[in-house]
Design a protein around this nucleic acid. Structure first.
Lengths: 108, 108
DNA sequence: GCTCTATTTCGAATATTCTAGAAATATGGT
DNA sequence: ACCATATTTCTAGAATATTCGAAATAGAGC
């Protein structure tokens, strides 16, 4: 995980339509849902849906498997876990040297 | 937590500059960092920083406390926790009825 | 090979976000 | 009152994202 991938994933989920799609897939679990299923449940035009799915897949948050002419989409939990871990990384660790130089000093 | 707030938070963190700011604050912990500290560490113009901080504060991911003329910023961990919980909500729960009607059926 | 269904690409209009200089405001110290 | 520092607002140009109809592609079944 790195800054760019994390930002990309977060930005993808930062759109209401994509968030709805993603949550639908999280709920669906390992079986996933076909694109048509998603379309039916969320009532989004096919081209709009394709646009958003491209983003989710491109960020690694969703994977797709083509079976015949239908595409099954699944939430890739590991990706999201990685992003969350990245956000919590170094929590409360503070910084090296500059406690003395920092404007932040208050208890000195 | 609801869709809109979650999407807002995720979108805020979906920008590289804001992600850097947020991670810096997570790392800084409860003491937080002044805006000048953030500016120094990330090398972002003051007006740009103000723009991004407004977003982070507006979404509830960051709080601010004014002490004299300096503003201390802190990561609001609870907010992020709420967003993460929301993303995982109903995981693998599936859907009501339509197992039979769904295009998704495969093992029938 | 035709036809129906599933999905993607194209294209263009619209909307939103990002950037950063310049000016304004706020506050502390002298 | 004045000056230096901290931060915000204003503004506007540039860059990106979103929407969705129409047309294109891909595969299944007859």
């Amino acid at each position: 995980m790195n800054r760019k991938i994390a930002a990309r994933c977060l930005a993808e989920l930062g759109n209401l339509t994509r968030l709805d799609i993603y949550r639908l897939l999280v709920r669906a679990g390992p079986c996933g849902l076909s694109i048509t299923d998603i379309q039916t449940r969320l009532d989004v035009p096919a081209s709009t849906l394709a646009f958003h799915l491209r983003g989710l897949v491109g960020s690694g948050l969703v994977t797709q498997e083509k079976i015949g002419r239908t595409v099954i989409c699944r939430a890739q939990y590991e990706r999201m876990d990685g992003v969350v871990a990245f956000l919590r990384e170094h929590c409360c660790e503070g910084f090296e040297t500059d406690l003395a130089a920092s404007t932040t000093r208050r208890a000195s």
